[in-house]
Amino acid sequence: MVTQPSRQATMQLHDGRKLAWSEWGSVDGIPVLFCTPAGMSSWLGFGASALPNLGLKLIAIDRPGLGWSDPHPNKTLSSWVDDMREFLGAQNLDNVLAVGFSQGAPFAFALAAQGGVKALAIVSGQDELTYPRLLPLLHPDVKCMIAAIQQDPVGFEQHFSQMATADGCGS
């Protein structure tokens, strides 16, 4: 069951874009950034009834172009980390934890890799699609995507970040 957020807010980033988020739990609790799955907005939270007793504040961010956050013209995992650093600074949040769920895992890993969070948990992270026993089972379109990633990971990320929108993949 999805519990409505206790609080929702927005802020303006230094480049003029709007960043939106939802919160559950204690206002002054230990901050836990929740990196939601693909295409999900900040309305998806978890454990709302347990958070106050644990002294936690769950914060789900609308990634650029999702929910109420404005799109980023050149979004990457690094630009996501930059946005989160700005958010954490503006909110005076320290000792932040993170949870990455499903396709939110790469965003959580990026935060951890660049020192943006103190600790990280991954829940149902994205499958390893190149696993030899899984690869033959994939749809041909997905196999082509995997091949494109292996040939040019940076180019694929740039291309994909331009076509992924809040409405799904297009153009």
Rank of each mutant, 00 (worst) to 15 (best):
T3Q: 12
Q4D: 12
S6A: 15
Q8D: 02
H14A: 15
H14T: 11
D15Y: 02
G16M: 02
R17C: 03
W21N: 08
W24K: 07
S26Y: 00
L33N: 01
A48C: 01
L51I: 05
L51E: 04
I59K: 05
I61K: 04
W68S: 07
S69H: 09
N74Y: 06
T76P: 04
S78Q: 15
V81D: 03
D83G: 02
G89M: 07
A90H: 10
N92Y: 01
N92T: 08
L93S: 03
D94G: 03
D94S: 13
V96L: 04
L97G: 05
A98C: 11
A98V: 02
G100A: 06
G100N: 08
F101I: 02
A105C: 14
P106D: 07
A108I: 07
A112H: 14
A113N: 15
Q114N: 11
Q114G: 00
Q114F: 03
Q114Y: 03
G116H: 13
G116S: 07
K118F: 07
A121R: 12
I122W: 00
S124L: 01
L129W: 11
L135S: 07
P140D: 11
V142K: 13
M145E: 12
I146S: 06
Q150S: 11
Q151V: 08
S161Q: 11
Q162V: 01
A164I: 13
T165D: 05
A166Q: 13
A166I: 10
D167I: 02
D167G: 07
S171K: 13
